[in-house]
């Protein structure tokens, strides 16, 4: 492993100051489950690691039907999955957390680390995007609340400015009549990067779909929404024919690439299958 300088600041001010002054070679260390592997395998050149574990106020989870969900930057995937109420209120996020890597990695990896890594295949992003989550950030010039759907600008890239730190995620409370699902597709059952990940969140009233949000992972430079497919669902009773055409529409709205994991054609085809299955899963829960 290449050598790097290790910093352990005590406040957000210090973290921000270090990131600004140290420049491009400085990275935040939280769980480190991805970063350290990248350093070891020389996929990322790191000169400085800024460890945020000593910064107060970055942990803690609140989760309730009334207030929704909020968790801090140091919250691990394992901790969040085990939090009371999460599996009931956000089964899509719960499934995504449980699909992430392995138990050992989940006990170390932070959810916000998974998000800020900005991989299009990150498991936790599609369900959070589909549920309208926002990310809270801190910067000496002022804090921001950014809708997660607008956070990513490309693979590994986000709208975070130099010296800006993601501090928390908030998710609105689930509305009555709303349902959600996330399906991950990979070759293995654990320790797997999604070939495709599809999250579907639907609001219904009296059996009619009033709003639909479909988020597609690993089929574009960022996690994508499929607005036209969503539009096909809204106002319907989500009958099989409608669901099939929405799934077909979602296939047209993604922009997958071919690589060693899969061909673009296969990914596109899976967007169709998984979108349909995710809606079906939602309908089964609703019924």
């Amino acid at each position: 492993m290449r050598r790097f300088e290790y910093h352990a600041p005590n406040s957000l001010e210090e973290v921000s100051g270090l990131l600004t002054s140290l420049g491009d070679g400085a990275f935040i260390l939280a769980g480190g489950t991805d970063l350290l592997v990248e350093i070891r395998e020389r996929l990322r050149t790191v000169k400085h690691l800024v460890d945020i574990k000593k910064v107060p106020g970055l942990s803690g989870i609140t989760c309730s039907a009334a207030q929704g969900l909020r968790f801090g930057a140091m919250t691990t995937a394992g901790e969040l999955a085990a939090h009371p109420g999460l599996a009931q209120l956000y089964p899509n996020l719960y499934d995504a957390l449980c699909a992430l890597a392995s138990i050992q990695v989940r006990n170390r990896a932070t959810v916000i680390g998974n998000i800020c890594r900005a991989s299009p295949s990150a498991d936790t992003i599609p369900p959070l995007v589909a549920d309208g989550a926002s990310i809270e950030t801190w910067h000496p010039d002022g804090a921001r609340i950014i809708p997660l759907a607008e956070f990513f600008t490309g693979p590994g890239r986000s709208v975070l400015r130099a010296g800006e730190i993601a501090t928390a995620i908030t998710v609105p409370p689930p509305q009555p009549g709303s349902y959600r699902a996330y399906i991950k597709h990979g070759r293995r059952k654990a320790m797997e990067l999604a070939t495709v990940g599809v999250a579907v969140s639907l609001d219904t009233k009296d059996g009619i779909c009033t709003a639909a949000r479909i988020a597609l992972g690993a089929v574009g430079p960022v996690v994508l929404r499929a607005p036209q497919a969503e539009a096909l669902l809204v106002g319907t009773r989500l009958d099989p024919k409608t669901v099939t055409s929405a799934a077909q529409q979602a296939m047209l709205e993604c922009t997958p690439i071919s690589n060693v994991r899969s061909s673009a054609d296969y990914r596109r085809e899976m967007v169709g299958v998984l979108t349909r299955r995710a809606v079906q899963q939602v309908l089964e829960v609703a019924a």
């Binding site: 395998e41 070759r187 293995r188 059952k189 654990a190 320790m191 797997e192 990067l193 060693v260 994991r261």
Partner: peptide, 16 residues
């Protein structure tokens, strides 16, 4: 080499 590592070289694991 396109997958010289355990991320993209897929051995079946215990759950598989």
């Amino acid at each position: 080499s396109l997958n010289a590592g355990l991320v993209d070289y897929k051995m079946p694991l215990s759950m598989d």
